[in-house]
Design a binder for these strands. Structure first.
Lengths: 245, 245
DNA sequence: CGCAATAGACGAACGATGTTCGTAGAAAGT
DNA sequence: ACTTTCTACGAACATCGTTCGTCTATTGCG
């Protein structure tokens, strides 16, 4: 049987471009690159596929859907959070350092924190962080029930504040200004709005405008964190004083 | 000039149905009805329009875009939060009651709380609540800076927890089960997952599974709220003891 | 080495979304 | 009575997540 030659108009699909080698990790890394550069709103399956030089359907061989991709990206980011070896006498400082590190990591990766708000953490890195926080608190003598609840509250606090902070970054993006001057202008408008309110109905807001607008993002975060930690310390004291001065 | 009769196939658009009377308030109320019944994901401009018996374009005469509609809906819900007259000697209880009432209101209205996470509150009702909280705290002797920061933190806390809680309601919706048995089954699966983790890497999580899963939504919220309030009280004491015992 | 089975890549398409445009008709001002 | 302004609305556009069917490159097997 003589071989039938391929008709010239029926070429092989693409002879020059070699098959792209996709993988879960590559897709996750590409998604993170897009989010870091352009924010969560810019992340679409099509955008990731385009970044990899392919179509959106190709991604579904490695990732079930967009939500799974987001979960994977989230856990990848959580992997950057540092978890220390427990030192019982430094438990409060250690806990504070972990939370601040988590806040730093989330703030660095735009608005990935929103994903953490949307589900119970079951990824390997999320478990690692939870285990670390639990270990530090239990070693420090925090009652188990308080420690368990605290993990939950701290995670919620970090994610929600990081998410709120990312919203300002999103507004600044594409406004042409740098973050500092954008925030200055933005909060200036808010302050002017508050000042323009009717004094009879909102006397305290108008009187406290400068106080309300004084603190920046980090100060606000640390204020709330210290409230939570002071409260936690009082739980430790309730459970029975330790040998510490 | 004799009047040209209208050809029978070219009828007036709709002779029977009188012009629908749309309004901002009606659109907002309809949107809230949809969100309360089916969740935030079900809310689309088309869905609201359909509910009103018209097309999506009609809404844009009264509402700039979907975000503005969501803001209006959010402030409408915030309007249900009760704001008391300040009684200085009861300031802490009053603040606690306001926050719990806000949590109750947000929990009753599915996941509208997510909107509150996404922006600085400038609606009239949000201002009313903020003014009320500020008044109660300042009357109670809370230092202005702490009071100003506290408003911010409390709002973030209430919205983020209510939002997290709404996620469970969303998963339950359409699962056919009632909320109690759905949550029982869901958390049972999570607990089983935690229990199945390798003990050498996650000793504390495995050991504390029952503790981690013990508290329900309200207990978790009140635990975190009490942490924040205890911390705030310590700020009042720092600023100088008042005449209270 | 040659052939069949399988897994991955991909074009095209579906339904749904937010939003805009142009038009038609009612209401209001003069 | 005429003109102007406002609003309701059908149609359309671009974009989204996802699925289907197909085609190809690789791998396992004899």
């Amino acid at each position: 049987m003589t071989e039938i030659p391929v008709p010239p108009w029926r070429k092989t699909r693409k002879v020059s471009a070699p098959r792209t080698v996709l993988s879960r990790d590559l897709i996750v890394a590409t998604g993170l690159r897009v989010v870091d550069a352009e924010g969560l709103e810019a992340l679409s399956m099509r955008r990731v596929a385009q970044e990899l030089g392919t179509g959106p359907a190709s991604l579904y061989a490695h990732v079930a859907n967009k939500d799974e991709l987001l979960d994977l990206m989230y856990d990848e980011v959580v992997g950057e959070i540092h978890v220390p070896e427990p030192e019982p006498e430094r438990w409060l400082e250690q806990l504070r350092e972990m939370v601040l590190d988590a806040f730093r990591v989330f703030s660095a990766h735009a608005d990935i924190a929103r994903v953490g708000l949307a589900g119970i953490p079951t990824g390997p890195n999320a478990l690692r962080v939870a285990e670390g926080q639990l270990a530090v608190m239990l070693a420090g003598g925090v009652p188990p029930r308080a420690a368990a609840l605290m993990i939950d509250r701290l995670g919620l606090y970090v994610c929600s504040d990081a998410y709120e902070g990312s919203l300002y970054v999103n507004r600044q993006r594409g406004s042409g200004k740098d973050l500092a001057s954008f925030l200055g202008e933005f909060f200036g408008q808010i302050a002017a709005f508050y000042r323009s309110l009717p004094v009879d109905r909102f006397p305290n807001i108008v009187a406290q405008v400068d106080t309300l607008m004084a603190a920046n993002g980090t100060e606000r975060f640390e204020f709330g964190l210290d409230l939570l930690l002071r409260g936690l310390v009082s739980h430790v004291q309730d459970a029975g004083p330790t040998t510490k001065g």
